[in-house]
Amino acid sequence: MARKATIFKAELSLADLDRNLYEDFSLTVAQHPSENDARMMVRLLAFMLFADARLEFGRGVSTDDEPDLWRKDLTGAIELWISVGQLDERWLRKAAGRARRVVLVTYGDRAADVWWEQSRGALERLDNLTVLRLSGDEVQALAGLARRSMRLQCTIQDGEALVSGEDGAVRVAPAALHRPEAG
């Protein structure tokens, strides 16, 4: 019998000073049986960084044709596609063709660095792709905040997030490995 997803509930109070967004969210996050707390919390952090009333969790790990999070416009067109991990360049190119904007949040230290060096040339050609990198220490600290029922506060300022929960606070400073050129 296949294992089912573990359901996490998060009450999130968000103060995004960079975007002048102050909102509370009640989130339900399904953790795939093959997903650890660290990856699940990175998905939750991605929600915080790009929070919007229409941003939704996709099926992510359990399907190849959906991202971890996405936001669609009222016509169903994909405005924002967010994935987590170290994905294949062909998969990201496909996502870039389907969405106006694609964000990849990669994490880990040595593995993320090796992946980026191998993928960099091809990914830098995608003009609607942003690649953010989190350190392994930040991700492990975030994983320490994971609870089946969480009350989290997140303040974002100057691109950094301070995420607070029952067991402390974690400062996360995503490094931009690649951003589309402003134009």
Rank of each mutant, 00 (worst) to 15 (best):
R133H: 15
V114M: 06
G183K: 06
F8D: 06
S164K: 15
Y107E: 05
L49K: 04
R39T: 09
L17E: 11
L21W: 06
D109M: 09
R100Y: 02
L134I: 05
A176P: 10
D65I: 01
R98G: 01
V170C: 08
R19C: 02
G108T: 04
Q86G: 03
D127N: 15
I78S: 09
Q118V: 09
D65T: 07
P33D: 12
Q86V: 00
L104V: 14
T130N: 03
A30M: 08
A51W: 13
V114D: 10
I78K: 11
V29G: 04
L74D: 09
D16A: 06
A77N: 14
D73Q: 04
R151Y: 07
M40W: 00
F57T: 13
L104Q: 15
R100D: 08
M40T: 15
D68Y: 03
P180W: 12
T106H: 08
P180L: 12
A175M: 10
E56S: 12
D158Y: 04
I7P: 05
A53G: 04
D68I: 03
A173C: 03
S149W: 03
M150C: 02
A176W: 07
A112G: 11
G121D: 11
R19E: 12
E56M: 13
Q86N: 06
Y22M: 07
A182Y: 00
S13N: 12
R171A: 14
T106K: 07
Q118I: 04
R93D: 04
R101W: 01
F47W: 10
F57A: 13
A10S: 13
K9N: 13
K4Q: 12
A77F: 14
D65N: 14
A10F: 06
Y22P: 01
V131K: 10
F25I: 03
E11N: 15
W81P: 02
D52R: 14
P180C: 12
